[in-house]
Amino acid sequence: MSIQHFRVALIPFFAAFCLPVFAHPETLVKVKDAEDQLGARVGYIELDLNSGKILESFRPEERFPMMSTFKVLLCGAVLSRVDAGQEQLGRRIHYSQNDLVEYSPVTEKHLTDGMTVRELCSAAITMSDNTAANLLLTTIGGPKELTAFLHNMGDHVTRLDRWEPELNEAIPNDERDTTMPAAMATTLRKLLTGELLTLASRQQLIDWMEADKVAGPLLRSALPAGWFIADKSGAGERGSRGIIAALGPDGKPSRIVVIYTTGSQATMDERNRQIAEIGASLIKHW
């Protein structure tokens, strides 16, 4: 067993022997301040990774656009098919120029040779490549099948209805392509620590998230040296922004954090800054 596999296998073990965790309302004060600064709703939840206990939450059962955070769930569904012998990570998928959609920095470079399922998941999570996500959605049967996968996990809230990039439209009061912070946090925890996926697939999923290259201005910008984070960000229309993450000190994750916002007129930089400040408060009061 590799060191990384050992780390993920012992996530519940280490967490069980940690000192009790206590909620700190100071972080919620910052979440509410972010709402004021952005002029928009902000949803927040913080779960203990081992027990699933909610440590703090704000608007945990209000719907927010998922945006690209759905790509972690998508690759979880792909990995479940791999575990069941219905898919192979090494299978190569070929596609054409007509398949390319807006923001496809990886797939646009491989029109000639195609990409493997493993490479597509890596591109979808680490670079948020939209064509990679659409190609992977095709392998599982489309958005409705991802929703069905989530329902089978016990998540009857999260739903995907459309493809990239239309799913980022974020129309107010439109339930399409949305989740709730509580539902997303619980589902992410199941994917990373539950028995739904094999140990190898859980490790692969967290490795992809740990290698995320496009979430630097968010929670990662607030992390002290030595902290662990595996995350996936999302951005959408109407001032929408979000991030889902597993993080913790001492090089291992111990909490799940989900943050979503929508309806702001603020710039992307300002949305990023507010999420980073929430992260800084979380870490300060850990």
Rank of each mutant, 00 (worst) to 15 (best):
residue 81 R to I: 07
residue 174 D to N: 05
residue 97 Q to C: 06
residue 92 R to D: 06
residue 115 M to I: 09
residue 180 M to V: 13
residue 277 E to K: 11
residue 64 F to G: 01
residue 105 P to F: 05
residue 238 R to F: 15
residue 58 F to M: 10
residue 265 Q to H: 14
residue 183 A to D: 07
residue 268 M to K: 07
residue 79 L to T: 04
residue 86 Q to Y: 15
residue 184 M to K: 00
residue 127 M to I: 11
residue 199 L to P: 14
residue 127 M to N: 08
residue 125 I to F: 01
residue 223 L to R: 05
residue 109 K to C: 08
residue 29 V to Y: 12
residue 70 F to A: 11
residue 121 C to L: 05
residue 186 T to N: 15
residue 275 I to N: 04
residue 169 E to F: 10
residue 86 Q to A: 14
residue 41 R to N: 10
residue 281 S to H: 13
residue 126 T to Y: 00
residue 87 E to Q: 07
residue 25 P to R: 14
residue 27 T to A: 07
residue 83 D to H: 05
residue 268 M to G: 08
residue 152 N to P: 05
residue 219 L to K: 03
residue 117 V to C: 05
residue 25 P to A: 07
residue 135 L to A: 06
residue 272 N to Q: 05
residue 182 A to E: 12
residue 77 A to N: 10
residue 77 A to Y: 15
residue 61 E to P: 01
residue 277 E to R: 11
residue 32 K to Q: 15
residue 113 D to Q: 12
residue 268 M to Q: 09
residue 39 G to A: 11
residue 286 W to V: 02
residue 122 S to W: 11
residue 54 I to Y: 08
residue 284 K to W: 09
residue 172 P to K: 12
residue 256 I to V: 13
residue 232 K to M: 01
residue 136 L to Y: 00
residue 198 T to Y: 07
residue 199 L to V: 13
residue 233 S to V: 00
residue 161 D to Q: 05
residue 60 P to V: 12
residue 142 G to H: 05
residue 43 G to Q: 00
residue 240 S to Y: 03
residue 189 R to D: 08
residue 53 K to C: 07
residue 248 G to T: 00
residue 174 D to R: 03
residue 92 R to E: 09
residue 137 L to K: 00
residue 265 Q to V: 14
residue 164 E to S: 02
residue 249 P to Q: 11
residue 109 K to G: 13
residue 237 E to H: 15
residue 111 L to Q: 11
residue 275 I to A: 04
residue 236 G to V: 00
residue 86 Q to P: 07
residue 106 V to D: 08
residue 268 M to F: 11
residue 87 E to A: 07
residue 128 S to H: 00
residue 138 T to K: 15
residue 283 I to T: 09
residue 270 E to V: 11
residue 269 D to I: 11
residue 175 E to L: 13
residue 275 I to D: 01
residue 34 A to E: 03
residue 190 K to E: 15
residue 38 L to D: 06
residue 136 L to D: 01
residue 110 H to G: 10
residue 89 L to M: 12
residue 159 R to V: 07
residue 41 R to F: 08
residue 147 T to R: 10
residue 178 T to F: 02
residue 119 E to K: 06
residue 76 G to H: 00
residue 63 R to K: 10
residue 126 T to D: 07
residue 283 I to F: 10
residue 194 G to I: 06
residue 195 E to N: 10
residue 194 G to T: 14
residue 270 E to A: 15
residue 178 T to L: 01
residue 231 D to A: 06
residue 143 P to V: 06
residue 114 G to E: 04
residue 107 T to M: 06
residue 54 I to E: 09
residue 51 S to C: 06
residue 108 E to I: 13
residue 49 L to N: 05
residue 125 I to A: 03
residue 212 D to M: 04
residue 144 K to I: 14
residue 134 N to K: 01
residue 192 L to M: 14
residue 211 A to P: 06
residue 175 E to Y: 14
residue 74 L to N: 02
residue 133 A to G: 12
residue 148 A to P: 07
residue 218 L to C: 04
residue 98 N to P: 13
residue 135 L to N: 03
residue 44 Y to E: 00
residue 39 G to K: 13
residue 221 S to Q: 14
residue 227 W to Y: 05
residue 98 N to A: 14
residue 285 H to G: 09
residue 157 V to I: 14
residue 247 L to M: 15
residue 41 R to V: 09
residue 271 R to F: 05
residue 221 S to Y: 10
residue 30 K to D: 03
residue 206 I to S: 10
residue 181 P to C: 08
residue 115 M to S: 05
residue 235 A to C: 06
residue 223 L to G: 03
residue 214 V to L: 08
residue 163 W to Y: 12
residue 72 V to D: 01
residue 171 I to T: 15
residue 284 K to D: 12
residue 43 G to H: 00
residue 77 A to G: 08
residue 99 D to Q: 10
residue 53 K to H: 14
residue 158 T to D: 01
residue 248 G to A: 04
residue 272 N to S: 09
residue 262 T to Q: 10
residue 29 V to E: 15
residue 257 V to Y: 04
residue 263 G to Y: 04
residue 273 R to L: 11
residue 59 R to M: 03
residue 240 S to N: 07
residue 266 A to F: 13
residue 229 I to W: 03
residue 139 T to S: 15
residue 268 M to S: 08
residue 47 L to Y: 07
residue 198 T to R: 11
residue 129 D to S: 00
residue 139 T to C: 11
residue 223 L to S: 06
residue 89 L to D: 05
residue 170 A to G: 13
residue 127 M to R: 11
residue 127 M to A: 09
residue 244 I to T: 08
residue 225 A to K: 15
residue 156 H to K: 13
residue 148 A to Q: 12
residue 82 V to H: 09
residue 198 T to E: 14
residue 236 G to S: 07
residue 51 S to M: 07
residue 225 A to M: 15
